[in-house]
Amino acid sequence: MAPLALGRAEDEPRGEAETRLLAQDFLLAPGATVAQLLRPRGLAVLDFVRFRCGEEAGGKLGENMALRRAAWLAVPRDCHIAWYVHGSPPDAPPRHPTAPPPPPALGKYGALVACRTADGAPPSPAAAALCRQLAQHVVGMAPLALGRAEDEPRGEAETRLLAQDFLLAPGATVAQLLRPRGLAVLDFVRFRCGEEAGGGHEAGGAARG
């Protein structure tokens, strides 16, 4: 429907040419305007933002933006997905696994890491914070594969996540840091703004740590 303005609840509809959201026919209930549908339910719309892939960024960035790549990371109920976006607030508190999802974060680099505790219980705040730091490690160290917990490190050329030196605790590999805390990494995804869609997808693959 692509409305251009919010309008007011009392606005009279103008038919198919209507561009005010509240006066438009509701897409899923033709014959009733958005305002008529909301009023008896005690709901009100305060504002809205609409995006279209490839549209100009409103003059704020001076560039065209397009979606090149997307990923869907699904895990069992006893797992936790941690995230990190370079440029997002560094002191954002860890979220409980059952909490609503965080708002979208924007940055040049981003990562998702799927973790699981040894007993399958939700991670403690400290464990959730460590998983987020691990996502930060994925952004900074750019591993290409997950590897195995028993892999021998290969030094600076190491590209397997579990065998890499942990970014925030040099001298210990990721596997060495996770093992005594009862944490395991199942998979990860890394994004870089501007990467080619046909390039390596920078995911950990099916290997298990």
Rank of each mutant, 00 (worst) to 15 (best):
M1V: 11
M1G: 12
L4K: 12
L4V: 01
A5W: 10
L6R: 10
L6A: 01
G7H: 10
G7I: 13
A9F: 14
A9C: 14
A9P: 10
A9T: 15
E10I: 03
D11T: 11
E12K: 14
R14S: 12
G15S: 09
E18V: 01
T19Y: 00
T19Q: 10
R20I: 01
L28C: 00
P30L: 06
P30H: 09
P30C: 08
V34W: 11
A35T: 07
L37V: 12
L38M: 15
L38C: 14
R39A: 15
R39N: 13
P40A: 05
L43V: 08
L46S: 08
L46N: 07
F48S: 08
R52Q: 14
E56K: 06
A57Q: 13
A57P: 00
G58H: 03
G58F: 04
K60Y: 07
G62I: 02
A66V: 15
L67G: 03
A71Q: 02
A71V: 08
L73M: 15
A74R: 13
D78F: 13
C79H: 15
C79P: 08
H80I: 05
H80F: 15
H80A: 01
I81H: 06
Y84L: 03
V85T: 13
V85I: 09
V85H: 05
H86Y: 07
H86E: 14
P89K: 10
D91F: 08
P93V: 02
P94R: 08
R95A: 13
H96C: 10
H96D: 13
P97M: 06
T98Y: 00
A99Q: 09
P100N: 00
P100L: 04
P100Q: 00
P101E: 04
P103A: 14
P103M: 09
K108S: 11
L112G: 04
A114E: 07
C115P: 01
R116I: 06
T117G: 13
T117F: 02
G120V: 14
A121P: 05
P122W: 09
P123Y: 04
P123Q: 02
P123T: 01
S124I: 04
P125R: 06
A126S: 13
A127T: 07
R132G: 03
L134A: 06
L134W: 00
V139I: 10
G140Y: 04
M141A: 15
M141S: 15
M141E: 09
P143I: 10
L146H: 11
G147K: 05
D151L: 03
G155C: 11
A157I: 07
R160E: 11
L162M: 11
A163Q: 05
Q164Y: 02
Q164C: 02
D165I: 00
L167G: 01
L168D: 03
A172T: 10
T173Y: 14
T173L: 12
T173V: 11
Q176R: 15
L178F: 04
L178G: 13
R179M: 04
P180L: 08
L183G: 04
A184F: 08
V185P: 10
L186N: 06
R190A: 09
F191L: 15
R192W: 08
R192Y: 06
C193L: 15
G194C: 08
G194N: 13
E196A: 15
A197T: 03
G199N: 05
H201W: 12
E202H: 13
G204E: 00
G205L: 05
G209Y: 07
